[in-house]
């Protein structure tokens, strides 16, 4: 048994940037194929996030009982708001903390650490490609919801608002992803990182605007919540989608979203740097 082919390593001449581009292209292609294999699971998870649709039922019921409108929202407004909330929640689903907790505890992070690419990019690739697998059933369900919704429900006034929403929801996803990465890096120290993420989720139902439009909360809650990331993940993107956010505030909201991404990203990177030294590579 011998290696016959003469081997002269011939490094293909590729520039730095095209090498990086190829890394991302291949990672995304492969993860897209992987996620497609899990489409059944993804549809199940899509259906799990029922809260916005349940709240839509409750608030429309309340508006009807109240003679057609409630706090300035009529049935159609509620329908548009909560369908948007549902869409926003679907677009910002993140499970990286579970992934990191598992890989750190089981030691499977090891093989990822020995590759010349930061493991976070693989997590990122899996999340982004999952979104593309999720798109078709999500939009199909939105179609059904819109068809069932009260007459005159306008999800988004025009294409511009929809495109702006896509931009804003991408930033929202990044806020959520970096925040969850922070929780994930805590797995280096504690077993409760996933519990922290669940705590976030419980808070987010109320403070991000999934339970009710934030206008329905007491003034003090509305004021305080501005200084937290919560409304920037659901409430503001949905307001942009439904055209309720005044154009004058658009840049401010997008700018603040970027700031949150930056802040959380830096914090996550720093925690990773000090946490990885504690990594025990258990059993792996």
């Amino acid at each position: 048994m011998t290696l016959q082919t003469p081997l002269e390593p011939k490094p293909d001449k590729m520039s730095r940037s095209s090498l990086i581009w190829r890394k991302f292209k291949v990672l995304f292609q492969v993860w897209l194929a992987h996620m497609t294999a899990y489409r059944g699971e993804i549809i199940i998870w899509m259906l799990v996030g029922m809260v916005p649709l349940i709240m839509m039922g409750v608030w429309i019921g309340k508006a009807q009982a109240n003679g057609g409108s409630q706090g300035g929202f009529d049935s159609a407004d509620f329908a548009a708001y909560f369908i948007g909330t549902w869409l926003a929640n679907q677009m910002t689903v993140v499970w990286i903390v579970w992934e990191m907790d598992f890989q750190i505890r089981q030691g499977t992070l090891s093989s990822k650490l020995l590759r010349p690419i930061h493991p976070i990019w693989e997590f990122f690739a899996s999340h982004v490609t999952e979104r593309f697998v999720r798109f078709p059933p999500v939009f199909a369900l939105i179609g059904v919801a819109w068809w069932l919704a009260p007459k005159g429900t306008v999800l988004t006034p025009d294409l511009t608002h929809f495109l702006l929403f896509l931009l804003s929801i991408t930033l929202a996803f990044l806020i959520r992803f970096t925040l969850s990465s922070i929780f994930g890096t805590l797995s280096f120290w504690t077993e409760s990182s996933t519990a922290l993420d669940e705590l976030y989720y419980v808070l987010a139902i109320f403070l991000s605007g999934t339970f009710a439009p934030l206008e329905f909360f007491p003034k003090v809650v509305q004021d305080v919540v501005q200084y937290t990331p919560f409304p920037y993940i659901i409430s503001y993107p949905v307001q942009i989608l439904t055209g309720k956010l005044p154009d004058s505030r658009l840049l401010e909201v997008l700018g603040l979203q970027c700031l949150w991404v930056l802040a959380f990203g830096v914090l996550a990177a720093w925690l990773w740097k000090i946490g990885i030294k504690k990594y025990g590579a258990v059993g792996a």
């Binding site: 669940e198 705590l199 419980v202 109320f206």
Partner: peptide
């Protein structure tokens, strides 16, 4: 540590449920 965080989580969910009710019954 898990236990403590989950306790906090339970409390927050509890307060949240009450806050949610007060929002729904605000009128």
């Amino acid at each position: 540590a898990n236990f403590i965080v989950q306790m906090i989580s339970s409390l927050v969910a509890f307060v949240g449920a009450l806050l949610g009710l007060s929002v729904l019954f605000g009128d």
